[in-house]
Amino acid sequence: MQVLIFSWEYPPRKIGQLAEYIDSLSKELVKNGINTNIITYHDFLTGTFEEKSGLKIVRISNPVRSHISFLTWILTLNQEIERAAANIIYQQKKKIELINVYDWHFIPAALTLKNAFEIPILYSIESLEDYRSQKSSQPYNMAIKSIERLGCYESDRISVKSEAIKEAIMNSYDVSEKKIEVFGLDLSSNFKGIKNLLNTIKRRKK
């Protein structure tokens, strides 16, 4: 089984808790025989490609250096995410079973890849723009929220770590309760959640 993980932070680049979490989760996936590729941002702390004990990490940077906001930086970065993902998809003989995308940043890339390659998307929501911006309704925050909404609508599955965030997503983005799974906080239950999802995908294919 093969998984692609998109996250805008991964060690040594740590912005919040996500980096450490992705690190532990990917190790757990590899340990259990799941072929795991991580695509993340390259901030020149490391090289652009790394392979350690079965885990492949591709780091990409933005060809456009001048930006007017974090939003334009993220939106242009997405094309490089696609390029890196397409390189992995075309190079490998085995099909990628799942793209697991963390928060809104790389939703645009994930959705294009889903349409082009028919790969299911698991959208793992760690936090929401409403939390980060104190429910701001400025156009800038609304734009990010519209990407979160699109991700919720077009992804195949949503995973969260608490009932509270599940509730918030259902209220903000009109998502059906059935689509969201609460994986909980600890690593083993998150791993189990992904593993179960992969098994379901496999069974459905047969």
């Binding site: 007017i68 939003l71 334009t72 997405n78 349409n115 028919e118 156009p139 800038y140 734009a143």
Partner: peptide
């Protein structure tokens, strides 16, 4: 469909939607 703070951001967001749909059509 995406609210945008400025014209350039609108262009990139429009491209996001265009690309997603184009991938679907191309497929």
């Amino acid at each position: 469909k995406n609210p945008s703070p400025d014209f350039a951001s609108w262009v990139y967001l429009m491209n996001m939607n265009m690309q997603k749909e184009a991938a679907n059509i191309a497929k």
